[in-house]
């Protein structure tokens, strides 16, 4: 059974400016994203990635079209209701971490609880646990200025998760990190989606994120390239490849498997069981 839909966008458009100065930043985008799915939105600068993310995050009203988050049509809601949608349904992860400079790591994570009215000792404990799980147990009372880039981004991830939203929106989450920290953050996002069943939408130029994404959506001039790219994992070498660009495929026990090369396919055919 397919997981339930968390995000649905229909004919979504955003036009900035008027008349001959009008720029169509997002152009008739249709999108369905399921629970536990990781979506990577890629595209050149100015293609409308961040605008699309802002609309999905209830931060920007589209010019046309509708967006549903958890079945709530957010495009219908007035400005006064949107903060409540953001704080309870969406977790944000930003490129430059955006932690509150005067607050400690723990206070940064607890902060959204005060916005959602869920600030309780149990939730404070949960914030502490989240940070400990992210390897920041010894950094709870550190101010952001005393944390490394990777640590800051982990605090930011904990903050995004504290209100237990179904949707996580991440804007270039690895851009300001070294490759090791970037990889750690990628794996965290992967675990969040797969173990906690969160829907993760990532906007990034970082090709490495394709390794964890279920789908890659290519945005060009505000339009999604038809169908997007579905990524599949070669069961032999573990490489993630676009489904339609797979060199070979085989059916085993009623399920189709995709391979990056004929060699992998041959190895699989000889003894499929060893690859599970």
């Amino acid at each position: 059974m397919k997981n339930s839909i968390v995000v649905e966008a229909n004919e979504l458009s955003k036009i900035f400016g008027e008349g001959h100065l009008a720029v169509r930043a997002v152009d008739r985008v249709n999108l369905k994203i399921h629970e536990g799915e990781i979506i990577l939105i890629m595209g050149p600068s100015g293609s409308g990635k961040t605008t699309l993310l802002s609309i999905l995050g209830a931060l920007l009203k589209p010019t046309d079209g509708k967006v549903e988050i958890n079945g709530i049509e957010i495009t219908k809601l007035n400005e006064g209701k949107l903060p409540g949608i953001r704080v309870n349904n969406i977790g944000f992860i930003f490129q430059s971490f955006n932690l509150l400079s005067s607050a400690s790591a723990l206070e940064n994570v607890v902060f959204p609880l005060s916005l959602s009215g869920k600030k309780s000792s149990a939730n404070r404990k949960r914030a502490r646990k989240l940070l400990e799980d992210l390897g920041l147990g010894n950094r709870l009372n550190y101010l952001p200025k005393n944390l490394s880039g990777g640590e800051k981004q982990r605090v930011s991830i904990a903050r995004a998760l504290i209100n237990d939203p179904r949707l996580i929106l991440a804007d270039e989450p690895t851009a300001n990190l070294d490759s090791k920290s970037g990889h750690e953050v990628m794996m965290l996002l992967h675990d969040i989606a797969k173990k906690q069943k969160k829907t993760v939408v990532i906007v990034s130029h970082d090709m490495r994120i394709m390794d964890i994404a279920d789908r890659v959506l290519q945005l060009e001039d505000g339009r999604l390239v038809e169908g997007g790219i579905f990524l599949v994992e070669d069961p032999v070498c573990g490489m993630r490849i676009p489904k339609e660009k797979a060199i070979a495929k085989s059916v085993f026990e009623g399920k189709t498997y995709y391979f990056c090369s004929k060699t992998c396919q041959e190895k699989f055919k000889k003894n499929p069981q060893i690859f599970f």
Partner: peptide, 16 residues
Amino acid sequence: TREFGIIKAIGARNTG
């Protein structure tokens, strides 16, 4: 300003 923007983004109302 930036921090207020962040706080708004993560769900604070203007009244807050």
